[in-house]
Design a protein around this nucleic acid. Structure first.
Length: 307
DNA sequence: ACGCTCCGTAGCTATTAAAT
DNA sequence: ATTTAATAGCTACGGAGCGT
């Protein structure tokens, strides 16, 4: 059994290893080294937690390490968004340049058949994020999105088709995790998901610009939903009112999953490093959020999977 | 019948890791 | 340094199910 001092040293060593790795590269052997370190610390803290010997100082250190890593992760996400934007711009400019100079005779149909042209999804993304509580555009909404998108098209090949928009929304709901969220937290009930989304929006406050998302109108299939709390028929404005019996951990996981959906729609799916950083953050948050009342719970409830 | 959503999946590109 | 294999992400197709 390792002492609390050794455990604290391990935590700090892990943080140091991670930060120095992020300052250089997160590839190959280095990544494996960090994964091994994370797994080792996970096991040690878990063992200490189960035996009731996890000292408050160790727990607090874990919380501080978690906060620092989260700050680093936020910076990395911002940098990642900027890099993605620049990469897209560069790729588009290069593509246009090559189109206009090197392959001027290639037909639009040939390009389309190759399937290598990505959609201009900016307006669809924007609509999705403004209607995150119920991202099912009506026919007229789709036509309006098509008009906005196609107004920017420089050629016929860049025009978005109605069926492409339909598929994009279906695929995006699935791949962003929205559909999974619907099943996991709202039992497939879209009205309940709308209620959850309203609670999250109320909880976060601010504007669409500060949140990057909005729940949209309280309307499903043309019917305006009265969002009431099932257990006492009061307006539901907080997650706690929507889920009166749920644990804080459940609500936090729900919030995290919702943010992940927003992030995925906003910038597309994250690359591997981004996912891994998220896992590391979850690991550190587990350290900071595990409390003595969790002692009776199985290990899976205390720790999430290591990266 | 028609329109819509969802699901499974094929085909493609870009990226990354491993092998040479 | 170059090539090859594996993987992830994206678009699109076909079919099933559902509601109108």
């Amino acid at each position: 059994m390792r002492s609390q001092e050794e455990l604290c040293m391990d935590l700090l060593a892990f943080e140091n290893l991670l930060l120095s790795a992020l300052a250089s590269n997160t590839h190959g052997a280095r990544l494996a080294q960090m994964q091994a370190a994370a797994e080792r610390i996970r096991c040690e803290v878990l063992e200490s937690e189960q035996q009731g010997t996890l000292a408050p100082t160790t727990r607090h250190l874990g919380a501080r390490v978690g906060q620092r890593l989260e700050r680093v992760a936020n910076l990395l996400r911002a940098e990642q968004r900027e890099t993605t934007l620049m990469r897209t711009t560069t790729r588009n400019e290069l593509h246009e340049l090559l189109q206009s100079t090197l392959v001027p005779h290639e037909t639009h149909d040939a390009q389309h058949d190759k399937g290598d042209a990505s959609l201009n999804a900016g307006h669809m993304r924007a609509w999705f994020l403004r209607n995150l509580g119920h991202p099912f555009p009506s026919r007229s909404a789709k036509k309006s999105i098509l008009a906005e998108t196609n107004a920017e098209a420089k050629s016929e090949s860049e025009c978005l088709l109605y069926n492409q928009a339909v598929l994009w929304f279906i695929n995006t709901r699935r791949r962003s995790g929205w559909t999974t969220f619907l099943r996991s937290y709202a039992k497939g009930d879209k009205a309940m998901l709308l209620e959850i989304a309203w609670a999250l929006q109320h909880e976060q406050g601010g504007t669409h610009e500060t949140r990057n998302w909005s729940v949209g109108p309280r309307t499903i299939d043309g019917v305006t939903r009265n969002l009431m709390c099932a257990h006492n028929n009061t307006p539901a404005y907080t997650l706690r009112q929507v889920f009166p019996e749920a644990s804080e951990r459940f609500l936090n996981e729900l919030r995290a999953d919702w943010e992940q959906i927003v992030e995925r729609i906003k910038v597309g799916a994250k690359d591997r490093v981004g996912e891994w950083v998220d896992d590391v953050i979850r690991l550190s948050q587990s350290i900071s959020s595990s409390r003595p009342h969790n002692e009776g719970q199985p290990a899976e409830h205390i720790w999430r999977t290591c990266p």
